[in-house]
Computed example of a mutant assay.
Amino acid sequence: MNSLTTKQIQEIIPHRHPFLLVDYIEDFEPGEFGIGYKCVTYREDFFAGHFPQEPVMPGVLIIEALAQVGAVAILSLDENKGKIAFFGGINKCRFKGKVKPGDKLRLETKIIRHKGPMGVGEAVASVDGKVVAQAELTFMVGAAQ
């Protein structure tokens, strides 16, 4: 198993607080897949407004967290080191449950197609074994400026 700490994740992808949405990577294979976790706390900045009466992690941030795990997998390839993975599209996206403070969000992204700078990942987010979101994420790898 290839695990990564938050510091090691930051050596691969450019995201930083408050937009780094992955706490650690449990396992990954460069160019193949990534499995990571986000430990959701009540102190997340987005809960101040989404929603004060019933805090729920915004769906777009769950998808972003899945993309960040996929970015770890794709940017770990030697030819992509130092580059950035950008969204090219989000398809077949479905939300099936809420993510609340105290949840440990499991993020799994499998790269199913990759040719040149473009690719597609199948992404699934779950809490306690229950799928809360899934999507097909298209990405493009580009140079950092």
Rank of each mutant, 00 (worst) to 15 (best):
M1S: 12
M1F: 10
M1G: 15
N2C: 03
L4A: 11
L4H: 11
T5Y: 08
T6N: 14
K7R: 12
K7Q: 13
K7H: 07
I9R: 12
I9S: 03
E11F: 00
E11P: 06
I12E: 02
I12K: 04
I13C: 08
P14N: 09
H15Y: 08
H15R: 14
H15V: 02
R16K: 14
F19E: 00
F19Y: 10
F19G: 03
L20E: 13
L21Y: 00
V22N: 03
V22W: 03
V22C: 13
Y24K: 08
I25D: 00
I25P: 02
I25N: 05
E26T: 07
E26S: 06
F28V: 01
E29P: 03
P30L: 04
G31T: 09
E32D: 06
E32W: 00
F33H: 12
F33P: 00
I35Q: 04
I35R: 15
I35V: 10
G36S: 07
G36R: 05
Y37P: 00
V40E: 06
V40S: 09
V40L: 06
T41Q: 11
T41I: 09
T41L: 12
Y42W: 13
Y42H: 10
Y42E: 15
Y42M: 13
Y42S: 04
R43F: 11
R43K: 15
R43L: 11
E44I: 10
D45R: 12
D45A: 12
D45P: 05
D45V: 04
F46C: 10
F47S: 09
A48L: 14
A48Q: 15
A48P: 03
A48F: 14
G49K: 12
H50R: 15
F51W: 15
F51A: 12
F51I: 14
Q53T: 11
Q53V: 03
E54K: 12
E54W: 04
E54P: 02
P55W: 13
P55H: 14
P55L: 09
P55F: 10
V56P: 04
P58A: 01
P58V: 01
P58C: 11
G59T: 03
V60W: 14
I62K: 10
I62M: 13
I62L: 07
I63H: 08
I63E: 07
A65R: 01
A65G: 11
A65S: 11
A65H: 12
A65I: 02
L66S: 10
L66N: 09
L66P: 06
L66H: 13
L66R: 05
A67T: 09
A67C: 08
Q68E: 14
A71V: 01
A71I: 01
A71Y: 02
A71R: 04
A71P: 07
A71T: 06
V72D: 00
A73P: 07
A73F: 10
A73E: 09
A73L: 07
I74D: 03
L75I: 05
D78P: 07
D78E: 11
